[in-house]
């Protein structure tokens, strides 16, 4: 037997052993998740990008001809108005969520840890009840002869029922109710981590509480603020059931527009191009997030 042959035999032996030791376990363990992510996440998204450049055929199917017309259609004033309104309402919701959530998160973080855990639990419990039922309660309260108007009428604060429902304002209230926990949790996580000695140092050096808050507390909890902005802004932007439950179809947002393209009017290519737009806005937000907070600080999620 010559040495090179035995060398080769050893190699194949090592290879089969290697295959048995590493490839098979790797395939069984990492295989399913790899398959799942490719088939259920990546390929469908690529397909969405693909059909956004296609045309709709007469039967609501897809006509495989490359075109940019879907993206040109977005530029029509009707749709631009819807997109602008969605961004405006989502931004408003985000800002109010932070303004309401930050003081509450601060309040919870300053409590002893056992009480803080209970208070956080109280924030989470509404989240476990069906969001739509809660929205429906708001709907009932806001009806012209509903509880809120009755109360205001009897108290003599108003002379005739207010139009509470079917307005942008009530949609923002609905978004707030469903999004506030997502703002409070990351804010709490970052405020809780804040090293108190920085605050003491700041006040020892003569800064007044307000200055300390603006120049020390806010910058140090910025990752939590940015995470809260992401967690509220992105879902609010694509949300369609809040406007449907409270806006009664009068408040049209981009989410409802996309949903209608897919489930009602069956113009899939146009719906796909709208959702690509939504994805682009999301990507810009993510990019800003990675610029402000480091991506490996994902634990705030």
């Amino acid at each position: 037997m010559n040495p090179s042959e035995s060398q080769g035999e050893k190699n194949t032996l090592a290879k089969t052993r290697n295959l048995k030791r590493n490839t098979l376990p790797a395939l069984t363990m990492a295989g399913p998740v790899t398959f799942w992510m490719l088939v259920f996440v990546l390929l469908p998204l690529l397909y969405v990008v693909f059909i956004s450049f296609m045309r709709r055929d007469a039967f609501g199917g897809i006509d495989y001809h490359v075109t940019l017309s879907n993206y040109v259609e977005i530029l029509q004033p009707v749709y631009l108005k819807v997109i602008w309104k969605s961004i405006k309402l989502a931004l408003l919701t985000t800002v109010i969520c932070i303004l309401i959530g930050y003081p509450l998160a601060y309040y919870i973080a300053r409590k002893p840890s056992k009480l803080a855990a209970k208070l956080l639990m109280l924030v989470m419990i509404p989240f476990w009840t069906n969001t739509l039922v809660r929205l429906y309660s708001i709907n009932l309260m806001g009806q012209p002869n509903g509880f809120l108007n009755q109360f205001l009428l009897r108290a003599g604060l108003i002379s005739k029922p207010l139009d509470i429902l079917y307005s942008d304002g009530i949609v923002v209230v609905g978004l707030l109710i469903s999004m506030l926990p997502f703002a409070i949790l990351p804010l709490y996580a970052s405020i809780e981590k804040l090293d108190k000695s920085y605050l003491e140092a700041s006040s020892d050096l003569g800064a007044r509480p307000a200055i300390t808050f603006l120049r020390v507390t806010i910058p140090l909890t910025l990752p939590g603020i940015v995470a809260a902005v992401m967690l509220v802004f992105i879902p609010s932007l694509g949300m369609y059931y809040v406007p449907e439950a409270l806006g009664g179809g009068k408040v049209m947002l981009i989410g409802s527009l996309i949903r209608n393209q897919f489930l009602v009017t069956k113009n899939w290519p146009f719906g796909a191009s709208l959702s690509i737009l939504l994805l682009l806005i999301t990507l810009i937000m993510l990019w800003l997030y990675t610029r402000i907070a480091k991506l490996d600080d994902m634990e705030v999620f």
């Binding site: 992510m37 996440v41 469908p44 969405v48 992105i234 879902p235 694509g238 897919f262 939504l278 994805l279």
Partner: peptide, 27 residues
Amino acid sequence: LKKLVNHSLYIPIVIPEIVLGLSLLLL
């Protein structure tokens, strides 16, 4: 494919739910 899988794990978390919903409908 490890890097690709690791990155794609964040996709369902960060993209708007509606986009994931319609892409699954298409699939």
